[in-house]
Amino acid sequence: MIEATELTKTIGGRRVLGPVSFELPAKGMYGVIGPNGAGKSTLLSLLSGVLAPDSGHLSLRGRPSTDYRPRELARWVAVLEQDGLPRTTFSVREVVEMARFPFQNWLGDEPGDPASLVAEALRSAGLEPFADRRMDRLSGGERQRVALAKVIAQQPELILLDEPTTFLDIGYQVQLLDTVRAWQRRQSLTVVAVLHDLNLAAQYCDRLLVVKDGAIVAEGTPEQVVTTEMIRSVYGTDAIVLPHPVSGRPQVLLQPATASPPTAGLPSAATDLPTGSEVAYE
């Protein structure tokens, strides 16, 4: 599905990515993790065709990415972003219908039955009761579900998620990723997700790529990648990694520098202040 060889990208005189090489076969859910500014979103923009690589070779479905016209690419690649959709006076249904743009002629017509596709997308995102409501009357979480329905209505084979859960509460986070994974499994799609939350990444993805300073520093299954050592070397912080009691996937417990076992009753300043405070701030 995706083959990248020695890809680089420089933005504003700074090399933000590369050279990176990787291969992502079709029909998998891939996670891209790494610290802020590591080049994750740039990588995703190269895959979506919004940015062109400065050097190297990127092939999508066996064809160089730069060979595709934007509309051609949009017929099978969809992107879900973190900031969702703005408050507009368009209705939910109208926004979801916009997903059909790359399939339409200039009059807005397309062969087939777009109305039932849109209805199906609204149903799978649980938006049927909202279909005729205006976007400026929805909450942030609801608008992100509209963004998901829009991606579904685009009928892509490759879905790129750019930190889609950033502004969502935990209920919506799980709901969104559950929907995406069920859809991915059902239709054998390929998903590449940039995720900030290591626990979600480990829970939902089949394989993970770890990006740091524009390079891929680790790659493998969540069990291989999400380790105390990786977190220390990539994020520069100490953490405890435990298997999830149900799924067995590795889960990260953060460890503040001042962490200490809970004591009975109110903590007293005398016992809780770290004695060697230089250790705490190093």
């Binding site: 949009a74 017929r75 790359p102 807005g108």
Partner: peptide
């Protein structure tokens, strides 16, 4: 139709092939 997509943002419009 492209102007409609601009209402939801330039990047989302680009992702739909504009």
């Amino acid at each position: 139709r492209a102007l409609n997509l601009f209402v939801i943002g330039e990047r989302p419009a680009a992702h739909l092939g504009v």
